[in-house]
Amino acid sequence: MSLSPASMLEREIYGRRSGKRGPEGLIMTISVAPFAVAEPRNGTIRDKLQHYLPRLVLAPSFLLVLVFVYGFNLWTLFLSFTNSKAFASSTLVGLANYQKLWTWTFETDPPSSWYTALVNMGIFGGLYVSICLVLGLTLAILLDQKIRGEGILRPIYLYPLALSFIVTGTAWKLFLDPRIGLEKAVHDWGWTSFHFDWVVNPRMMIYCVAIAAIWQTSGFVMAMFLAGLRGVDGEILKAAQIDGASAFATYWRIVIPIMRPVFLSALIILTHMAIKSYDLVLSVTGKNPGGAAELPSTFMYSYTFTRNQMAVGSTSAVIMLMTIAAIMVPYLYSELREKNR
């Protein structure tokens, strides 16, 4: 039996109702538990097994990650310094590929595909992450008011996540298509001056991608926050109530700061989803008309696999990785260091 992330979260939420653990348990229990094994005190087989079993069980996945994530990261880095075209080659060309992308970064009239990709990443990533966080938190707080029917409402918000991005993208493309979707429906209802053609306007397409992505993921973020809210100690809230804090102040000053670790996990999940989103862009925009719906991921794929310029594709992948690292590493560092203090 396998559980989808959504249903695991559901269990997490149910489990938290009575539990007293802090919200940081959500991510920390997963990574900490395997190492929290005591050293063997005596030489019985059982103790030895207990000592080595966790390492033994972790070894295959550790090896797989080492080779298939970090190994291939290094391989991509190597390719970015070569002149690889259709197939990988080992002829080194130095920084030529980086120079090419660097020049393209500043070509704005007409915009180069790489420039468009970066701008779109900024627009899409910024909107997607911030709106998902705000919407997710708001929904979670509203659902946390002990309302009736929470059991029905929660899955309704959560289940868009069960769809694949292709399905979401195609559905939203059809829904927003002025000829058959929203615009036509509103016209049929009598509001004939209504105009909404973003999905067929290359300059506005990226916003449609953001709308579809937010629709898909904000419920998931809501579930994460809900799990966090359920973990907040009721005693603290009662104390705040006795001190006469308003509901707004309680959330703003007490609950949200306590949930900082949830923000961290939500932010990491959303950021990586934004950066790797590929199928959604293609299905909403219809293969990049006008070259205006490019994202770094589509750029990387098209150069590596369609245009047989593997070296340029690898270079863009390396730049993507470095950019993410530049944003995430300091953030992770500050968050995790604070906790260790």
Binding site: P110, P202, P289, Y303, R307, N308, Q309
Partner: peptide
């Protein structure tokens, strides 16, 4: 080859959609 055909696609579509 695909690299040049891809560049051609870029220019034509950017022109057709008014970016160029």
């Amino acid at each position: 080859p695909p690299a040049i055909a891809g560049a051609y696609h870029d220019v034509v579509t950017k022109f057709f959609h008014g970016e160029i």
